[in-house]
Computed example of a mutant assay.
Amino acid sequence: MAVFTAVTDSQLTDWLQHYELGEVVDFRGIASGIENSNFFLTTTRGAYVLTIFENLTAPQLPFYLDLMRHLAHHAVPVPDPMPRRDGALFGELNGKPAAIVTKLDGAPELAPGPAHCIEVGQMLARLHLAGRNFPAYQPNLRSLAWWQESVPAVLSHLSDDQRGLITNELAHQAAFFASDEYRLLPEGPCHCDLFRDNVLFAHPTADETRLGGFFDFYFAGNDKWLFDVAVCVNDWCIDLASGALDRARVDALLRAYQTVRPFTPAEEHHWNDMLRAGALRFWVSRLYDFYRPREAEMLKPHDPGHFERILRERIKVAPPPAHGN
């Protein structure tokens, strides 16, 4: 969520005439992230986030915004897109599609413990089940086809060892994705990017912590639910320095998830394959963003080596997931 496209006060004032959100009280850019231009917007009616979409096109946006609205209306705590006066959930600002969503309470928990993982696991399963009757379909745009397209663009920047690792893993995942067992894994709308900084926790009292909600759905798509869980575990349940899994947090998150939606036998069998898929997806994207960067006012590219380490750890074979009962 960097700032690629600036917005002046007069541009904001003119654009807000399309909404019934009151007068502007505060407006400022959000520095974290790398994909869209995001701003905190406070008005006399409430607190919101304004997003200008740098890569997603107007025809693609309804999936993401309608999914968020669907989940919000099914008791999943996510940002709710605000309709314009004409009923549309987005418009055009500075020549690009843009939307306003409600701002959730809380702050990210960047050093989570098992208790945080329990709340995340349960809510992720609820999100998956709530999405079953969502009528629209959008594939995960950062899945296998994108990996196959992007890896050749970064190979020249890698060492021989890294090139061997990434090409071998890409071949492994292509074979996995082509298998009958993969095809039969349960699927539906997924967040696909549920990292620590995309989840908020509120603290109503000194001794109480509650999940504030999930946000940043602009990588969402239909995928295997197990992939969504693996992406989450690869961030929430690891030692950040080494990439190794923290068994206590893994058990907490997976047991909590499975109290809501138990894994199928095929999901248990392919758990490590999917952990590797999740690691590869983000190693590829971080390599691409690092070596093929776009200009931004507040861009902070992530270290590609982090997910290289995670992938190497997962190839060592992770233990099977704990059962939910």
Rank of each mutant, 00 (worst) to 15 (best):
D289I: 11
A99R: 01
D66T: 12
D251L: 07
H157W: 10
H306I: 13
R126F: 01
C237R: 00
T209I: 12
Y19Q: 01
G121D: 01
H157I: 04
A171D: 14
W15D: 00
E92P: 04
E267T: 01
L253K: 05
L275S: 01
H269C: 07
E119V: 01
V199H: 09
E20R: 13
L311E: 02
T167E: 15
N55V: 14
T57Q: 10
Q162I: 02
P112L: 02
L184H: 12
F307G: 07
F290R: 13
H323Y: 13
P62Q: 06
Y19A: 05
E119F: 04
V151M: 07
N325T: 11
L254Y: 05
Y257L: 06
L12W: 04
T205Q: 12
I100P: 08
L124P: 06
R294L: 12
H203C: 12
D14Q: 15
G212H: 06
W15K: 05
N272L: 06
Q11Y: 04
C192A: 13
E169I: 05
V199A: 05
L104Q: 03
V151Y: 08
E119L: 15
R286D: 04
L245R: 07
E23R: 15
L89W: 10
W236P: 02
R183L: 11
R294W: 06
H74P: 00
H269A: 14
A111K: 12
A136T: 10
V3F: 02
N38L: 09
T51S: 12
G324W: 07
F307I: 02
F27T: 01
V229F: 05
R28D: 12
L254F: 11
Y137F: 15
Q162W: 01
C192V: 00
V154C: 07
M123P: 08
A115H: 11
N94I: 01
E35R: 11
R261E: 14
A256I: 01
C232M: 02
Q11L: 08
P97V: 05
S242T: 15
R85Y: 04
Y64C: 02
D223K: 08
E208T: 15
R28K: 14
L275A: 02
G278E: 03
H302Q: 15
F219A: 10
V78M: 01
A130N: 08
F195W: 11
D26I: 00
E187A: 14
E20P: 03
H73P: 00
F282G: 04
P321M: 04
L226T: 06
L165Q: 00
L12K: 06
W15Y: 10
T259K: 13
T5S: 09
L245D: 06
G121K: 05
H270Q: 09
D239A: 10
M1S: 15
G46A: 08
F217I: 07
D228F: 04
L65P: 06
A98M: 06
R261Q: 14
T13R: 15
D160N: 09
P152Q: 09
G87W: 11
F134K: 05
I118L: 11
